[in-house]
Design a protein around this nucleic acid. Structure first.
Lengths: 338, 338
DNA sequence: TTGTAAGCGTTATCAA
DNA sequence: TTGATAACGCTTACAA
């Protein structure tokens, strides 16, 4: 592990000169610079980022905080794809990523700002946090720049990236209405996700525009879980045979609803149309293939890291970014049988 | 950002005492310790890991090097699930994870040991590297402790975690033979993966034990890609109608093979049995559901990080870990029609 | 039980 | 164009 000291000694110059030579300052003789560089190569020198961070108080590191990063996230590749985007863009910007894995147990022992300050990250990207997560308050209080995924929180140092969930839901419902559906239910995610609220309001808005009366019992809570969605859909469909279409706030729940329908002997899409949300990989492999609202997860991550680094460099006053979604019509929707 | 200096001043003691008090040394008066602790709390002190790393030359950080971490890995959640395991176990052991994202472009500018030394990681876990990856040589040369996933390389500071791929393949073939199949093809992955070689040898071994003659043209290269597998399977099945079963070295390729069969009007499993490898999420959603050899990806990651931390603490002489696989029989295999 | 001082590998200020 | 020297925040002999 050669240091600049070693190089300085070998080159017969001071550490200052070595530092400047290696960092491309122009107040150093080209001849000495070359000598120093070749010695550095010989000694297989690489700068110690830890030491540099200490003196510059810049770590060139972004903290990635994913709540409950675990296997259950494996089915919808949401988390993973967002991470890929974050990874690509932060490495484009010259930042490394440090993974903060937290679960509710660990959260009790270490506060958000402790976590960040310890590792001296310059900024944070948070993913998968619920609206009632205690860390969220700390994000505002602390002045560490932070970009949230799918949590609409704004502040001097806080921004977010999300997609247009209201309009996404509207597209889904409009699609069903255009097909001729009148009795459209919704399986929503849990209330601790902002996207649930947004998608619900899109549902309401679009029903309203079509002058279809809203029926409270048509909105179910599937908790974003496939089996839970299956359970509630199963009960619901038995009680409400007039319903010909269900809009689900996630593809995973849509898969659960499909299974419920099949258990009840309903054929999809002939007896029941289903629209999902996310466009996860599985959507294409379901039988029939799932009509859904596609979110560009990779881009969400990519933009999140871009937004954060721009904030770090004070290059932007922008604090939020809302991406468009897209309706993808596949085999799980059709006109209702009359 | 309070430092121990601030605390020292506020408490009227030296920084040494503060350091020792906070780190739980027993040569400090309990009264002063308590005073110091409460002041630290007041000042919302958290230790600066960067400074600590510098002086202790220990960063408590593991580098995670995933080759080509990108969306294409999103379909088989392999990478992601392994990562979850690594994440859980390393955080259990008190290590943080730093993500080295590299692609072949970036590799040219920065060598493996440069990458590691810069960030002063204590050890590295590598995933997704091909056997001809230039970084692999460096792993051996450098003396940074490293654990590889699915690359069987051993050395003083190098270990690996993999599954019993030979036996896994044997289970697959035995299953097909037991069903009565005689003409069994294999779609293998590319040669730059060790697992391809292992799975092939399992295939050969099991054929041999059943005295089924090996036919070279029965082994195809699907490059681990779904569309590629579909292409080669499509051509192959046309030319070789006697084949009643295909063993694929990955589930993704098995999905491709299924599609090829369906395009040729072959029914699965009645006209053609297919066995995959991995047990990715999609395997259960395919139609019919895919019979496969399941690998515990999460555990692979978990054990990799455990092995690495054990190596770091010199607590083990063990350098490798081979996990068992499991045959999961689903709907894509049955007895051949005679 | 506590304090002084050196040092980890850098960068930055100032003077030469 | 170069070099002394201080500083970043912490740990750790060694001394008191």
């Amino acid at each position: 592990m050669a240091t600049i000291k070693d190089i300085a000694k070998a080159a017969g110059v001071s550490v200052t000169t070595v530092s400047r030579a290696l960092n491309g300052y122009d107040d150093v003789n080209e001849k000495t610079r070359n000598r120093i560089k070749s010695i550095a190569d010989e000694l297989k020198y690489s700068p110690n980022a830890v030491a540099r961070s200490l003196v510059m108080s810049k770590t060139k590191t972004i903290g990635l905080l994913v709540s409950e990063l675990n296997r259950s996230g494996a089915k919808d590749m949401f988390t993973f794809e967002v991470m890929c985007g974050i990874n690509d863009s932060s490495s484009d910007e010259g930042y490394d990523l440090i993974l903060f894995s937290t679960n509710s147990v660990k959260q009790q022992s270490k506060s958000y700002s402790q976590l960040c300050r310890e590792r001296q990250v310059e900024g944070v990207i948070m993913q998968g946090v619920k609206t009632d997560d205690p860390y969220l308050e700390e994000v505002i209080e602390s002045n560490i720049p932070c970009v949230l995924i799918d949590v609409e929180l704004e502040g001097d140092n806080v921004g977010y990236v999300t997609t247009d969930n209201v309009f996404g839901a509207q597209m889904a419902i409009k699609h069903l209405i255009n097909l001729g559906h009148k009795h459209i239910a919704m399986i929503n995610g849990h209330d601790q996700a902002l996207v649930s609220q947004r998608r619900l309001s899109g549902y309401l808005k679009e029903l309203d525009e079509a002058s279809i009366p809203f029926r409270e019992e048509y909105v179910l809570n599937g908790e974003f879980l496939e089996p839970k969605a299956e359970t509630v859909a199963y009960e619901f469909l038995q009680k409400n045979p007039e319903v010909t279409a269900i809009f689900c706030a996630s593809d995973l729940m849509a898969l659960g609803a499909m299974r419920a329908a099949q258990r009840l002997g309903k054929r999809i899409p002939n007896d029941l149309s289903i629209v999902g949300f996310d466009d996860i990989t599985l959507a294409q492999y379901a039988n029939p293939q799932l009509t859904t609202i596609a979110q560009d997860k990779y881009q969400m991550g990519y933009e999140a890291a871009r937004l954060l680094t721009a904030m770090l460099h004070k290059k932007t006053l922008q604090r939020k970014m809302i991406l468009d979604n897209q309706l993808i019509v596949r085999g799980s929707t059709t006109a209702p049988r009359n």
